[in-house]
Computed example of a mutant assay.
Amino acid sequence: MTVKQLRAFLAVAQTLSFTQACEHLHLSQPALSLAIKGLEEALGGKLLIRSTRHVRLTPEGESLLPLAKHLLAQWENTEERLRERFTLQLGRLSVAAMPSFACSLLPEALASFRHLHPKINVTVHDVINEDVMEMVRARQVEIGIVFAPEGMGSLTFTPLFEDTFVAVLPPESPLNDVSLSWANLLAQDMITLQRPSRVRRLLEEGLAGQHLELTVAFESHQLSTVGSMVARGLGVSAVPSMCIPLMHALGARCVALDDTPIACRVGLLSHQELSVAAQALRTVLTDTVAPLFEARWQHRGAGFAGN
């Protein structure tokens, strides 16, 4: 039983005229008769009785009529909803992002996306980098914003921008007023994220490349806790510059380092196949995030520590 056959039956059943049904469906009489015959063969019996002057429904045809109306209404509703999804007039989308990205760069990108596609509902999961990766792998979200992963498997990573680490200091630290090197910073009590944090590994790898070793006094699972501990004078830290707004909100100060920078790439993690809505969001992110990051970094300049 096909949609075409049901539409043919419904047109004849409602008009009780093959001629009017042909006009309504823009079909020839042989094509309409073939569709009705195919439906009757599929169901196993007569649905219509046709004479030279009249068309009437059999009892089975009478019982099929309300069902055909319901089935076709459901089908047309499904068609319309899918059409709206493909044209971005309807849809839902879930993304996951590191808190430092979710609270700084993501809102402006989502504002651009909302302006272009106001009918798409977006759910944001702000979770640590490792959880973002797991949510993408498990298909709980379509897009994740993460630091460049070490192993991706079947996933795809699209770089957005390259970030660099900055020092995080207590408000009254004497290091605020000196030219700061990695050696100066590491001489203090260091507060970092716990392993297996990608930020922690990037920092350790970058320092090892400069023949320096990270000795940790305090460690935490959340960047917000690291920032709060620094703000209260328990030590110092180093985080990607993307985290500066979060550190400032917690009361810490961020200072540029004069040594060789430790860099980290930030980008989009996803499976290769994406919904139309996710493809649209990926385009907005790739078009807006890098210029936004560059503009903010240049605006901070050398004096971002006090902002």
Rank of each mutant, 00 (worst) to 15 (best):
R81C: 07
T78M: 08
I49E: 15
R300V: 01
A183V: 12
E79C: 12
R81M: 13
G44V: 02
L82V: 06
R92P: 03
A21I: 02
E273A: 12
E205T: 15
Q188G: 01
R139P: 05
V289I: 15
F304K: 00
L185D: 09
A231V: 04
V132H: 01
K119L: 07
E273W: 08
G235I: 11
S28V: 05
S154Q: 14
V266A: 07
E205P: 07
G227I: 00
V12E: 09
E40Q: 14
T215G: 04
D258K: 08
L185F: 12
L193Y: 10
E41M: 09
G44E: 06
L160S: 02
L116V: 02
G44A: 04
L234N: 08
L207P: 03
L90H: 15
F157N: 06
D287T: 14
P291G: 10
V239Q: 08
G206E: 04
H125Q: 09
H248F: 14
L185W: 13
R139F: 02
Q89I: 00
A208Y: 02
L93V: 02
H26Q: 15
S104K: 01
E130G: 00
A263F: 13
E150W: 07
Q14I: 00
A13Y: 07
P59V: 07
G235Q: 14
Q5R: 04
F304T: 00
F86H: 13
L72P: 00
I120S: 13
L82S: 08
H26Y: 07
R195H: 15
H115T: 05
T288S: 09
E213C: 12
I36T: 11
A31N: 08
H115G: 05
S28H: 10
N77T: 14
D163G: 04
L72V: 00
P291V: 05
R201V: 02
L203R: 03
V12L: 07
F101R: 08
V168N: 01
T19D: 11
S63I: 02
E162N: 02
E204N: 13
A167K: 00
S197E: 03
H211W: 06
G144Y: 09
I145T: 05
V266K: 02
A31C: 06
C103S: 14
S241M: 07
H211M: 04
T164L: 12
M247W: 01
L16V: 11
N121E: 14
A290M: 00
T283L: 12
F161G: 05
P118Y: 10
S63L: 04
G151D: 12
L268C: 15
H248N: 07
Q210S: 02
A42P: 05
L72R: 00
E213A: 13
L155T: 04
C254S: 10
A217K: 06
E60T: 13
Q272F: 03
A167C: 01
R265Q: 11
E79V: 11
K46R: 15
C22W: 03
L186G: 12
E108G: 06
L274S: 06
T283D: 13
D287R: 15
V255F: 09
L246W: 14
E79R: 14
A183W: 05
E62K: 10
D259M: 04
G209R: 08
R92F: 12
S220A: 15
P118I: 10
A187G: 14
K119Q: 14
A167G: 04
A280V: 12
N184I: 08
A256R: 09
G206M: 06
R50T: 15
N184F: 14
L169K: 11
I36E: 11
F293I: 03
V146A: 04
